[in-house]
Design a protein around this nucleic acid. Structure first.
Length: 490
RNA sequence: GGCGCCAUGGUGUAACUGGUUAACACGCCGCCCUCUCAAGGCGGAGAGUUCGGGUUCGAUCCCCGAUGGCGCUACCA
C-alpha cells in the first residue's frame, strides 16, 4: 500500500453497481445514498453501472426498476447506461471484449491461468475438505499445467475457466477508510475464477477492470466485500494499476441482526414506494443508519433533507457496526413527513400514488360488473388500499386441511410467485401446476391465496387482482401472513 | 471448521484529542387534551457502555485476551 495519497488532486468519481437480478434493493439505496452524497460534496461524479454478468440470475425487467427506484429517491447519477458518459458502455454485458482483452494480459504475465477442472471434480474436493474440517480451497490442480497440457486440453475442446494465480506466500494489506489497515494471508485467499466458462467475467474481474477504466477514485460498497478486497488489490497490482480508496459500509440488518433479507423484512424499493412511503422519509431514514450526520441539525436531530445531508453528512463518521433496519421507526418518520405536508400537497401525493388514475382505473375494471351501487366500491376493493390484511382461520383454512399443511402450501405458493413473471399467462399455469403436484385442488389453491391477499373468500378475480396489486406488495402480504401464522402457533 | 469485521438501553444514534448524574430519538408505560382514534403536551421505566485483564490519578473512549454477533468461504453479486 502506498503511503502517499495519490488521489488528492484527482477528480472524485464514485459508483454504485447493482445487479439486475430482481427488485431494486433497499441496500442499493443505502449504498447509493452514501456514494451520491460523497460525490455531491466534492463536485465529483456519481456513476451508475449495471453488473449483469450473471446470466442465470438475470431478470430483464430489473434494470428499469432500478432506474425508477433511484429516480424516485432523487439519487440522480451523472453517468450510466441510460444517460451515457465518457467511460461507457456502463452495462457490463456490453463490455465483454474489454474483459477478454484484460484477462489475456493476465494470462500473458502469468498472473492468471486456465483451469480445466469440472464442477463435479471441484465439488468432490470441496466435500472432502469440509469433511476433513479443512478450509475449502481450490486445490491448485491446473496451476502448474504445462504449456503442452494446456494446448492439448484446448485442442480437445475442453471447457475451461480462467483463475487468478494468488501468490502462495506472503500477505496483502489494504486500507479500509473506516477501519484502518486490514491484512489477509495469501494462504487464505483462493484462486478466484475471473472468467467463467461461458466467457462472462466474474464480479471480481469486471469490477476491478471497470473501476479502473471508469477512473473510480473511491469504492464505497457494502461490508460483505471486505473478504474479497485482497483479491481485488492483487488484481490492481497484476495490472500495474493504482487501487482506489476502499470504504466498506455496514450491512443493514434484520431484527435478529442477520444481513437484511426478504424473508424477514421488506427489502424491495418497489414495495416501499407502492406501500406509500415517501422518498424523503426513506432517504432520511437511510441517512440515520450508521450515523454520519452531526447530532443536532435545526433543533430536530433526526430529521433532515437530502440537501442537508449533502451539507453536513460525513462518511468518516459512519459507525462500522451493522444497524438494524427498524420498520417501526421508518413508519414513524414517514408519518412525520406526511403530517408536515400541506393538505393540498398531501392530497396531491395521494393522487399520484395510492390513488393514481392508472391504479384506480385498473381496479375499476375489475369490479364494474360485480357491484350494484357505486357505494359498494369499497366493499370489494378494500384490500387494494389496506396494509394490514390478516385473514381469520375460518377464512383461509380449507376444509379437511390442517393449519400446518396449509402453511407449508402457502410457503410453496410464495416460492412459485417469487419465481414467476408477473403476468396472467405465467402465473395461472405456474400456480395450477404447483397445486397439481401437491394435491391441492384449484379451488383450495386459489382460495387460500385469495384469503391471504384480500382477507376474504369473495373478491375480484385472483390473478388479475394480484397483477394490479403488484408483485412486491403481493409477496410481502404472503410473507407477512406466513410470518404471523407461524408466530401465533408458538 | 478457516479467515475477516464488529460490540453503548428492545431499536437507531450521542458523549471534544480519556474527566458527564452516560444524552437524544423510536418503541413501551402513565397522565393531560378529547365523542373515538391519531396527533400534540407532560411524566416514567429501561444501559453504567459484552466480559476479564492491563495502561492511567482517572477509562464508553487506548492496549491485550475471551465471549458473542455478523460477513465471506460459488464458474452469485
Amino acid at each position: 500500500m502506498t503511503a502517499i495519497d495519490p488521489h488528492s488532486a484527482e477528480e472524485i468519481r464514485v459508483r454504485i453497481a447493482p445487479s439486475p437480478t430482481g427488485d431494486p434493493h433497499v441496500g442499493t439505496a443505502y449504498i447509493g445514498l452514501i456514494n451520491f452524497l460523497y460525490a455531491r460534496q466534492r463536485q465529483g461524479k456519481f456513476v451508475l453501472r449495471i453488473e449483469d454478468t450473471d446470466r442465470a440470475r438475470f431478470v430483464a425487467t430489473s434494470e428499469q426498476m432500478i432506474f425508477d427506484a433511484l429516480h424516485w429517491l432523487g439519487l440522480e447519477w451523472d453517468e450510466g447506461p441510460d444517460v451515457g458518459g465518457p467511460f461507457g458502455p456502463y452495462r457490463q454485458s456490453e463490455r465483454s471484449g474489454i474483459y477478454r482483452e484484460h484477462v489475456e494480459m493476465l494470462l500473458q504475465s502469468g498472473a492468471a491461468y486456465r483451469c480445466f477442472c469440472t464442477a463435479e471434480e471441484l465439488e468432490a474436493v470441496r466435500r472432502r475438505q469440509m469433511a476433513a474440517k479443512l478450509p475449502a480451497r481450490y486445490p491448485g490442480t491446473c496451476r502448474t499445467l504445462s504449456v503442452t497440457d494446456v494446448e492439448a486440453n484446448l485442442a480437445a475442446g475442453k471447457p475451461f475457466v480462467i483463475r487468478m494465480k494468488v501468490p502462495a506466500h506472503g500477505s496483502t494489506t489494504f486500507r479500509d477508510e473506516l477501519r484502518g489497515p486490514i491484512t489477509f494471508e495469501h494462504t487464505n485467499v483462493d484462486d478466484q475464477v475471473l472468467l467463467k466458462s461461458d466467457g462472462f467475467p466474474t464480479y471480481h474481474l469486471a469490477n476491478v477492470v471497470d473501476d479502473h477504466l471508469m477512473r473510480i477514485s473511491d469504492v464505497i460498497r457494502a461490508e460483505e466485500w471486505i473478504s474479497s478486497t485482497p483479491k481485488h488489490v492483487l488484481l490492481y497490482q497484476a495490472f500495474g494499476w493504482q487501487a482506489p480508496r476502499f470504504w466498506h459500509m455496514p450491512l443493514l440488518r434484520n431484527q435478529d441482526k442477520s444481513k437484511i433479507s426478504k424473508r424477514k423484512n421488506p427489502v424491495s424499493l418497489v414495495y416501499y414506494r407502492q406501500a406509500g412511503f415517501l422518498p424523503d422519509a426513506m432517504l432520511n431514514f437511510l441517512g440515520l443508519m450508521g450515523g454520519g450526520m452531526p447530532a443536532d441539525i435545526n433543533n430536530a436531530s433526526e430529521k433532515f433533507t437530502l440537501a442537508e445531508m449533502i451539507q453536513h453528512f460525513d462518511v468518516k463518521n459512519i459507525r462500522p457496526a451493522g444497524p438494524v433496519f427498524d420498520l417501526t421507526k421508518l413508519r414513524w418518520l414517514n408519518g412525520e413527513y406526511i403530517r408536515a405536508l400541506s393538505l393540498q400537497d398531501f392530497y396531491a401525493t395521494l393522487r399520484s400514488t395510492v390513488l393514481a388514475d392508472e391504479y384506480l382505473t385498473e381496479i375499476a375494471s375489475l369490479i364494474q360488473t360485480r357491484i350494484e351501487t357505486l357505494g359498494e366500491f369499497g366493499n370489494l376493493t378494500h384490500f387494494f388500499f389496506a396494509d394490514d390484511i390478516q385473514p381469520a382461520s375460518e377464512v383461509f383454512l380449507p376444509k379437511n386441511r390442517t393449519p400446518e399443511e396449509t402453511l407449508v402450501f402457502a410457503a410453496e405458493q410464495l416460492a412459485v410467485l417469487e419465481a414467476t413473471d408477473w403476468t396472467h399467462a405465467a402465473l395461472e399455469p405456474a400456480l395450477k401446476q404447483l397445486g397439481e403436484s401437491k394435491g391441492w385442488s384449484v379451488k383450495e389453491n386459489f382460495m387460500l391465496l385469495r384469503a391471504i391477499l384480500t382477507g376474504s373468500t369473495m373478491s375480484p378475480p385472483l390473478i388479475e387482482s394480484m397483477i394490479v396489486f403488484g408483485k412486491a406488495r403481493t409477496l410481502d402480504r404472503v410473507r407477512r401472513f406466513i410470518d404471523v401464522q407461524k408466530k401465533s402457533k408458538k
